[in-house]
Computed example of a mutant assay.
Amino acid sequence: MSGGVDSSVVAAMAASTGAETIGITLQLYDHGAAISRVGSCCAGQDIRDARAVADKLGIAHYVFDHESQFRETVIEQFADEYLAGRTPIPCVRCNMGVKFTDLLRIARELDADCLATGHYVRRIEGKNGAELHRAADPARDQSYFLFATTQEQLDYLRFPLGDLPKDRVRELANMVSLSVANKPDSQDICFVPDGDYAKIVRKVRPDADDAGNIVHIYSGEILGAHKGLIHYTVGQRRGLEIGGLAEPLYVIKLDAASKNVLVGPKSALAVGAARLVNPNWLEDIEGRSVLAKVRSLARPVSAVLRGDQLIFDSPEYGVAPGQAAVIYDAEGHVLGGAWIEETVSADMMASA
């Protein structure tokens, strides 16, 4: 129970069945510092909200302090990824660690039959066991962030909201008079409340602002200077401060070794393939024509996996190391996913 409307409604749904229901909240931040933070989850006021909902439903509620684990496995890794010139996805790391590892362990220690969460994904029983599918409401689907869920975890998890639109969830919350019925949703990265990623990285890694050059990826010409790789992401156009050029330039690559930001025309962003590491395959997809989603807000595109290479049918843009490639079939069944280690430009693929 993160303190939001989604997990609160799941708790209400579970309690309404007559089953013994236990609410669990993981405290992920310092309680004092986060007491009034807006757009967070699992901190301060959110813990109070979760407890109020549990009291309303008449169910047990436990809070477990996982602040140190969250800092080490999510926040510090987030900072280190940026310093390495990569684009991290802390929500996936959180699901892989404190949520679907620690939470499952706690649930099993409590001898629970299952763990239900407020994620918008569908769990469907297939011929080989539980399957993970995209949510019925595409605007709320969170399957991209859950690609690392293992088969063993899927067998134990339940996602009651996967078939519901958000408006219906709020209606259900109002029907049982939950105080969080109209509470705003938490933001994508809960520990960056103001959207300033660089500030978080500097706080965790004080030496993060190492300056370097902005270099044209084709000519090698130095076009300007920057104040640290942490201020840039692949595909970025604004904020480069290198005006007076004949064509707009985009961030193509962040070179942590040289501390250079490599820029070029939009065509240089075209990626033909990506090398994947640390996969979690729920089915064998070698050589299959599949749909690949390479950013949380991207549409799935046609691709094929050969070894550790994800080869796109058509050039894909905005593919960045550190992000995830999540693989689906045409029906929205999550077949697994992996981390993008490096990319191969479409031009290089064409000339090979």
Rank of each mutant, 00 (worst) to 15 (best):
A11Y: 01
G18W: 08
T21N: 08
L26N: 05
Y29A: 14
I35Y: 03
G39Y: 06
A43E: 15
G44F: 07
V53D: 02
V53Q: 01
H66V: 11
E67N: 13
F78A: 08
D80C: 11
L83V: 12
I89D: 06
V92W: 00
N95I: 02
D102H: 15
L103A: 14
L104M: 10
I106D: 13
L110R: 03
D111K: 10
K127D: 15
H133K: 03
A136I: 01
D137E: 13
A139G: 00
R140I: 02
F147C: 09
Q153G: 03
L154Y: 00
Y156P: 01
G162T: 02
L164E: 10
K166W: 07
K166V: 05
R170A: 04
R170V: 01
E171H: 07
V180C: 04
A181P: 04
K183R: 14
C190S: 14
F191E: 05
F191C: 05
Y197P: 10
K199W: 02
V201W: 04
R202E: 12
D207A: 08
D209R: 10
D209M: 09
D210Q: 13
D210K: 10
H216A: 10
S219C: 02
G224Y: 00
L229S: 09
L229N: 11
Y232R: 04
T233N: 14
L245P: 01
A246V: 09
I252C: 12
K259G: 00
N260K: 05
P265T: 15
K266Y: 15
S267F: 07
G272H: 13
R275P: 01
L276A: 11
N280G: 03
W281I: 08
L291W: 11
A292M: 07
F312G: 04
I327Q: 12
E342K: 13
M349D: 06
S351I: 08
